[in-house]
Design a protein around this nucleic acid. Structure first.
Lengths: 248, 248
DNA sequence: ACATGGTTCGATGTATACATAGAGTATTCG
DNA sequence: CGAATACTCTATGTATACATCGAACCATGT
């Protein structure tokens, strides 16, 4: 009921987009599998027009691939694709950090960043870290990265970072939950948090090169997490989207 | 007539997209101006459905901006936006060059790059450089950059570079024609060609950091060209798209 | 004169009917 | 028995009719 009410507030297009994205990311569709409009109509309950819009938007998001003869299929990713997407995201965030450092930010702008840092500190203090704390970390980490990106004050760059982070693999918090089951979990989070602290310090002192370098390295933590998760396949259920990863 | 024939081979959606893009880039629409679907229908001659698709695609291209209440308007760019877009493109091409260098490329892969270099050499040898030569340079330069991007062998990165270069401002050859009227023109082209040569050399010798740095610096030539073009507004007619640039 | 309300117009969002192209299958001929 | 061709069926591409939301403008009341 409440769901129907909430649904009515957003357009059919958005509803279809969310439903189809969840469907793809749940791994219930195999990579390369065609997703027909009629099929999508049945799933989402809206007509072909908004379904079509949703499919186009999911293609630009990178989750679907256009079939030359028409229509869309679920995109397949190699491990290398994902590692490259992470390096790409790190490079863009590095550029954002450098812009912030070079252009200077007011202490007022840095305040929410530092608040984020403190809150994360509170989470990683516990040992071992609870599953709830991991969830909170994911949210706070996403917030930190979003705030950092904003500091660049560059709409074109912010736009590109958003697009690069749209794929759940490439997003800053993509593999945090997957690592929650690993023994090294807390260690990795402590290192990540140190990166956060260093980049704020670098921006504050207008050290552009340092800010850029640390964000690049920071993204490589996600790459390490990915490799750990793929080697240690016991907790893959935490990341159903990895079903889209093929041998490649 | 021949145009009608050619038009029939592509979908109405693509036709509308091309027509509307030209319209926006010609500067006949002011930044911030709403572009209604019915208006677009009259211009393109196709019905609302493909027009709608074309508008969505032009939004992702970055030429249009969605209006919260629905519909699209022509996007406005500040000079800073364009400079940032160029820096962004340079950063991504730098990453592609580094990937190519680190991962290694066969001499067979480098062959078309070197051929491109030779052809450009032939063009910049003349002094002064003819307008036709500038046109040829634009084509060859685009080809060189495309080949270089491909060398990264990273589909996610190639995809992002294509998207970042979609805006004519940010594209590698965006300001070449604008500089054709400047006295420094030949000098700039010689420097650009030296960059091309250096990046190929760096990739060949697997010098990742050098390849990355030179591509970043290479993009800054475009930034210099932009500043020259904006200061020296006499030949702005060569780049009608600059009408989209607002004071900002 | 200004603010507030209502009404009207026009815009986009949505659904659906129709055209068409392509893929798959069955049938026929060599 | 295999291959080629024709046919059918289903998919997307397109056009259009209808619903709905928002904005602008006018009128009215304070």
């Amino acid at each position: 009921m409440a769901e129907r009410e909430a649904d009515r507030s957003v357009s059919h297009t958005v509803r279809a987009q969310l439903a189809l994205r969840d469907l793809v990311l749940s791994g219930r569709l195999r990579p390369g599998e065609r997703i027909s409009e009629l099929q999508a109509v049945e799933i989402t309950g809206v007509s072909r027009t908004p379904v079509r819009m949703a499919l186009v938007r999911l293609e630009e998001e990178g989750l679907l691939e256009a079939i030359p003869s028409g229509g869309f299929m679920v995109k397949a990713f190699s491990e290398r694709d994902i590692l490259d997407s992470i390096e790409l995201r790190g490079t863009l965030e590095g550029l954002a950090a450098r812009f912030a450092a070079e252009r200077g930010v007011s202490s007022r702008d840095l305040e929410p960043l530092k608040e984020c840092l403190s809150e994360i500190d509170g989470l990683v203090r516990q040992d071992p870290i609870s599953v709830e704390a991991f969830s909170s970390y994911v949210a706070l980490n996403a917030r930190f990265h979003a705030l950092l990106t904003e500091l660049s004050r560059s709409p074109p760059l912010i736009r590109q970072i958003d697009r690069a982070s749209a794929l759940p693999f490439a997003s800053p918090s993509g593999f945090v939950m997957a690592q929650s089951a690993l023994p090294e979990a807390r260690q990795i989070l402590l290192i990540a948090q140190d990166h956060h602290r260093v980049v704020v310090d670098a921006i504050e002192n207008r050290e552009g090169a340092r800010a850029e370098a640390i964000m690049r390295e920071h993204a490589r933590l996600a790459a390490r997490n990915l490799r750990l998760a793929l080697r240690n396949r016991t907790h893959l259920d935490l990341l159903p989207a990895l079903a889209l990863v093929t041998a490649g």
